[in-house]
Amino acid sequence: MYNEKVMDVFKNPKNVGEIENADGVGTVGNASCGDIMQISLKIENDVIVDAKFKTFGCAAAIATSSTATEMIKGMTIKEALEVTNKKVVECLGGLPAQKIHCSVLAEEAIKKAIDDYLAKKNA
């Protein structure tokens, strides 16, 4: 059901962990649904210099977390806010239909982490 690329990323995910003193953290999903995704960001001058994730979820959730964090590293927050779940799925070479919601979680987690950063910055 998963393509090789997805299994590959699942097997060797990048950016696993939590950034200490992160500038923005976003957690989405809940345990009863079977998916929780947490993305933490290090941001300098509105550029994402580091991104890490922790995910409770299926292979697709882990693969999309890894890919999404890879994609946004080096992006400005404006660019990162334009990363859609569709782009994450494309980067993985496609996901089974029932797994698309995992990629939506990744998009939401990025947005939430950036919102957190902006809220802190403007506080």
């Binding site: 079977g34 959730a61 882990i62």
Partner: peptide, 10 residues
Amino acid sequence: EFIEGESILF
């Protein structure tokens, strides 16, 4: 605990 079954399966 703390992890999801499908990811264990794979």
